[in-house]
Nucleic acid binder design. Sequence first.
RNA 1: GUGGCUGUAGCUCAAUGGCAGAGCGCUUGACUGUGGAUCAAGAUGUUGUGGGUUCGACCCCCAUCAGCCACCCCA
Length: 427
Amino acid sequence: MKTIIQTVKGTREFYPPEMAIRSWLYSVIRKVSESFGYQEYDGPFLEKIDLYAAKSGEELVKEQAFVFPDRGGELIALRPELTPSLARMVAQRQGELAFPLRWWSFGPFWRYERPQKGRTREFFQWNIDLIGTSSPECDAELVTICAAFFQAVGLTTEQVGIQVNNRRLMDSALANLGIPTDLRPAVFKFIDRRDKMRPVDWDAFGLELGLSPNQMEGLKALLEDTELWKQSDELVRFFEAMDAMGLSAYAHFDASIIRGLEYYTGTVFEARELSQEGRAILGGGHYDNLVADVGGDPLPGVGFAMGDVMIQIVLEQYGLIPPYQSATAPVLVTIFDETRQILPIRLASAFRSAGLGVILYPEPAKLPKQFKYADRIGVRFVVIVGPDEELAGQVTIKDLMLREQATIPQGEAAGWIKGRLAQAHSL
RNA sequence: GUGGCUGUAGCUCAAUGGCAGAGCGCUUGACUGUGGAUCAAGAUGUUGUGGGUUCGACCCCCAUCAGCCACCCCA
């Protein structure tokens, strides 16, 4: 290896074992999403930068998106998130879609950030949204989907939890403390920062913001109050629905969960891994006007997004990633020597016609070499046609797993293998 | 964007400023028509890259790239 061009910073390569994990994740996500009746969709990977500038604020676009001019000079972004594309897609066909919409997607996104643990510049994200209605029961459905996913991959309620709060509840709670409307967004940010700062610094920061000592005390009491949700009709209905949906053990009220995004208006939630520092696995919430910024009539909805990087770290931590199966086919047909290359090809084709996956060794080689290869790639059956078999119209099949072999008529070989495979399945 | 740690064989890692190594893996053979085990032999490096200091640099210095970690940020 002399001058291998490096991969782009923050990207990952998916060799077959990694690709298998990604595909498995995708399949679980699909299964869970579809079990709630959600439809798969996707937007473009390239978008005009204006799409994000309109909604997400300039910081996101200028500092965290991959942006480049196309040949016409127009600024194009590799999509850093899906929500604006979703909003446009919904707005464009607002008149013909059947609401409520239940849509999900799993695809690549790019953010120009410094890579670190759980964060890459190129990643995959599961987005799922319920659009067009505004009930707390819908919020509960999304949180339940999140819980159903955790259950499907084997994460327990001891390992992960979903913290739930409501912005309207917090807003009125702050009002009760006498915190003026214009200060509340800053206080939301302030609450969000609490677990990242030392208590002393946090207190100082609060006073600096303009909160009185009394308000600080009230705020702390608020954040500790595990019964606060009972003051919110929305959350009362939410938790009632959660209980009925059967997976409420994953969800907990937590007044300190705010979420940074400004477009969330009601219930917000965040899933975390519960041991250690508790990494955030996914986040989501309720919004009131998804499509307003792209020119549609306001539509409410609820949704969340989960990145593939952090969930994989958590799954790996708990040993929940399925073992890699390297075998791509159960059968390998060997080539005995130069004069016997055609019959193996015929046999391989016959096996495939019978529904078996077959790998044909590419050239004549010593049998030990071909067997070693079969072993390395995880093939179970090795088929040999040498001079003896050829004369007798037979094949020799070795079952590498059971370490036994048989020499049988060529016409019976496929059936013999399929019989053994079926046995394995019934074990 | 800020700061810290790291970069040596395919992999995991050693090597006081003085001949660049081990384990695993790999290749070949022991095994003339049969994989994993064992044994033996063998191959593999511009020490991330570019400069500098030095008689001499994997080692010290500077820059750069990448990875990891913490900030920042989190759509």
